[in-house]
Design a protein around this nucleic acid. Structure first.
Lengths: 251, 251
DNA sequence: TGCATGTCTTGATCTGGGTCAAGGCCCGGA
DNA sequence: TCCGGGCCTTGACCCAGATCAAGACATGCA
């Protein structure tokens, strides 16, 4: 079912460049003895689009971070209603130190590579190396802010505003990673199916589709194929998103 | 407008008992030199029900925790739509180290006493004293879990389920603080107006009122006055809340 | 005592988004 | 080349919850 790749040669150059645990939290400031012990437990795992990485309630004995691709955290009610509660892009952290079992389904929505550490050694490292904990605190606070922005979206925005917000969020994160802008026109490839979008936004798949069509008809976005979107005027999209002030620069 | 009380005698016994920063994070494990410097900047502030403590965007040069009463974090859109994004009960932490300005309106929904620290010395303490940061990380992770439970509520639950969930959440937090249960019958005093509930739940005030009436008619809850609620069968309430498995033990 | 204000309830009506259903498009495999 | 299955779009209809409106009840102040 899942291909597990243990630190193959081809990933070597990735280890320092893309792994936030090492790169952001550790490399710069800590002595390397700690790192060596962590390094021993580090491994890479690949998943195919659509694969579930962990089921809610399952034992989860690793933490890690996304290297490439996109993963989601989703909650499910008994009758099958689903709500996405986390969208994980490259460099995002997965897993909660100090927790035995996963609280959410973790799903790869695109092909995905994760950098993982066994939880126990990672927790030991956290105790010994304050910077790791501090960096994790920062990241968690950022996620909390993102969750709160998301709550405003879920609780108070209209379907049209929700769609506009989601496109803006993805465009911004994309841009901050890859600088895809070209003089005002922003180009995004949606990494989510309509269904995943509906789970993000608390809508049905049909409403997502209708609202994307509506934004297209109104010239807010241009759609090529199903996923490729061009935003001719980003400010207009932001207006449609109904965001307050600096709105949604988080996550 | 706001009464500021600086460490009066009558609060002395409170300082160790109720203040989570000192009590939970610091007292037990750290040397007291650090504490002394923090102690100098510690002060108590009281607010009346309805008072806004900080406006979103305002400079906020303190962090703190709720000693008694209830505060909320709320986001507002330009057209006035409001969504609560944080509900702060006694012992909850307020403020984000490393941030200059408040990201949300902080409002006292009941009379409130907060224990505050100037932000700068607190941040210095965090660098020097890892346990404070570790404790804060734990608390932030708990808040993130709560936010995600809240997102499921906002995105996927019906009005009736939302009301039942909110009553259950408050009852559980009350119970964990004060053990109010008496053989199956649980008694809660809602600390929120109907309007605050509507802001929590992403509903209108009228829908909140109607659904409370509906739950009363169906015998799920008994209502005395406007705020005093008795839950004859807690499990039935949980069923109405539609919670998955252990549902909502978080927060 | 009477009035104003804040909080809550209830009724009547409207509507945004859900539900159900049909069909289009594209890709991969027989 | 055709077929089957994802994925997406669009239409028709419906309903949960929003909106608009009236009034109940309690408290505090003149």
């Amino acid at each position: 079912m899942q291909k597990t790749i243990i630190a193959p040669v081809k990933f070597t150059h990735v280890q320092c460049g893309d792994c936030p645990i090492r790169h952001r939290a550790v490399c710069a400031r800590c002595d390397s003895d700690e790192l060596t012990s962590l390094e021993e437990t580090k491994y890479y795992r690949s998943f195919e689009a659509g694969q579930t990485i962990v089921w809610s309630g399952d034992r989860m004995d690793f933490v890690g971070s996304v290297v490439t691709g996109i993963a989601t955290l989703t909650q499910t009610m008994e009758d099958g209603r689903r709500q996405m509660v986390g969208l994980l892009l490259p460099s995002d952290f997965v897993g909660r130190p100090g927790r035995e079992t996963a609280a959410y389904d973790v799903v790869a929505t695109t092909d995905l590579v994760m950098c993982c550490f066994r939880k126990k050694p990672f927790e030991e490292l956290m105790v010994q190396t304050p910077h790791v904990g501090q960096r994790l605190l920062e990241m968690t606070l950022d996620e909390l802010d993102a969750a709160r922005e998301w709550m405003l979206l879920l609780g108070r925005k209209t379907a049209r505003e929700k769609i506009a917000s989601l496109i803006a969020i993805i465009a911004r994160r994309d841009a901050s990673l890859k600088m895809q802008k070209s003089e005002g026109r922003v180009v995004v490839d949606l990494p989510l199916t309509r269904e995943a979008m509906s789970e993000y936004l608390g809508l049905t798949l049909e409403t997502v589709s209708r609202q994307i069509s509506a934004l297209r008809k109104d010239g807010i976005i241009e759609v090529e194929g199903k996923r490729h979107i061009t935003i001719p005027d980003f400010d207009r999209l932001i207006e449609e998103a109904g965001d307050d002030s600096d709105g949604g620069f988080l996550v």
